[in-house]
Amino acid sequence: MNGAVAAGALSIRHAGKVYDPEGLNVVALDGVSFDIRSAEFCVVVGPSGCGKTTLLNSIAGFDQLTFGEIYLDGAVLARPNKPPLPGADRIVVFQQGALFPWKTVLWNVSCGPIQQGKANRAAAERQARNLLSRVGLKGIENQYPGSLSGGTKRRVEIVRALMNEPKILLLDEPFRALDALTKSVVQEFLLELYDEIPKTIFFITHDIEEAIFLGDRVVVMTTRPGRVLRTIDVGIDRPRDYRVLTSERFLKLEREVRESIHDEARKAFEAGERELA
């Protein structure tokens, strides 16, 4: 897990998605292209309905593109009507949380390597215990997710994802349901984890502050049809903590992103579009 493998480079090329509910062609994604370097923390930010979840699902294999391709480490991953099978090289951490509530924390965290046949139960559980205690989650192995707080559940789910040594980690607004204080703690947890175990991360949010705080690069998307509005290199040194939030550089970037998104929201409003999502 520590041996930083130079893998997980993602290229999205002209990705497009047209939904066809009852004959209405809704363009969710339109010609989206950007690259994520290996071990880069990339945050996609945009208003609801900008197609960012569609993009994530196309990478994960839960949805398929209508146009364009997605490449992972130079090989075609997804092309129109040929979605990849979901797999452990592209683990998703879901918005609403997907720890199996009927299994213990230890079972949840160790199940990936066991099910993929990469490790036997004993080895996987040992690895799970190690990783949990390394990230300060020792002592909850035998509890069920229902008895954990929201923040702890999110942390366990991120640990479960990392156990599979994915090439890329896909996080779909994972902290959306958390209260502000818990959210900042879990964000710092993710940053610490990223510093220790660098992975390619594709992170979706509509929270501008979160995007800049976490990301190396922020991809700002427009409302439907989703296009890339601009890409911003954050360029704030790691390790980062909450003090970054009040730095000059951070505030300047936040203002920039907010202005471009605000224009976007107003444009959408003036065009009389209705938010569907």
């Binding site: 979901p86 683990i91 998703v92 997907a98 199996f100």
Partner: peptide, 15 residues
């Protein structure tokens, strides 16, 4: 059963 558990299972490589 919420669809998300099926997605998570497939993502984690469950048969």
């Amino acid at each position: 059963i919420d669809e998300v558990y099926f997605r998570a299972a497939r993502s984690l490589g469950f048969s």
